[in-house]
């Protein structure tokens, strides 16, 4: 159920925790029942989008947490390396060419659904790096330690801010790079910055 390899080692199983109901395996291209009911992707959803182990360990790579066919294609246009395959139908789910993706994160800022993350498993021996979209004020400072939140907004640990990419235009989406405990690479999807949350 966890896909082609030991995705669970990087927290994929934990990532998918929630009220998964046995026997609700969605057909390819359709979101799981759990996602439709709760907004939380199920393990089967995540297993379809998390890159193979050798790709994940090689360096930063984009993880498209996009599970539902909707009319949307800015990720395709944002990628300068052709790593997002052309859309036949605008409702198609994005398909990533892992060999071309270098985890630059342009798509993270472009995705209207804020559904793309860049993950570098094993950024150091003990940590992983995550680049995530963050549209709240204040933006964190480089070096700041912030709360690491999972897909339900629950605090699961701490994160150190490595870099803050501010968009060139005021209306863009900032991308925050954080370093987390290695096994939390596929668990942490948001941060809690002290000093409140105000829209970017």
């Amino acid at each position: 159920m966890f896909g082609p390899d030991d995705a669970s080692a990087a927290g994929v199983a934990a990532a998918g925790r929630g009220d998964t109901v046995a026997g609700t395996v969605a057909p390819a291209g359709a979101a799981s029942g759990q996602l439709r009911r709760t907004g939380l992707p199920a393990v089967e959803d995540l297993a379809r989008v998390i890159p193979p182990q050798e790709v994940r360990r090689r360096g930063p790579v984009a993880v498209f947490e996009c599970f539902e066919r909707i009319p949307c294609d800015p990720c395709y246009w944002s990628c300068k390396r052709g790593a997002v395959k052309p859309f036949g139908d605008i409702n198609d789910l994005p398909e990533v060419d892992w060999e071309r993706c270098n985890g630059c994160g342009l798509c993270v800022a472009a995705c209207p659904g804020l559904a793309i993350f860049v993950v570098h498993e094993g950024y150091t021996d003990t940590t992983s790096l995550i680049k995530l979209p963050y549209e709240f004020l204040p933006l964190p400072e480089v070096g700041q330690v912030v709360g690491a939140l999972d897909r339900e907004g629950t605090r699961v640990g701490e994160a150190r801010v490595v870099r803050v990419q501010k968009p060139r235009e005021k209306v863009g989406t900032p991308v925050v790079w954080i370093e987390v405990e290695r096994d939390l690479a596929h668990v942490v999807r948001n941060i809690a910055v002290a000093g409140g949350e105000r829209g970017e």
């Binding site: 979101a31 029942g33 996602l35 439709r36 009911r37 709760t38 907004g39 939380l40 992707p41 947490e65 996009c66 599970f67 539902e68 909707i70 209207p112 659904g113 804020l114 559904a115 939140l149 999972d150 897909r151 339900e152 907004g153 629950t154 999807r189 948001n190 949350e197």
Partner: peptide
Amino acid sequence: PVIGGYAVHASKIRRLG
């Protein structure tokens, strides 16, 4: 019984708790 909007919007607010 199910969320009517796009799943990406739902996931976005779930991450906020």
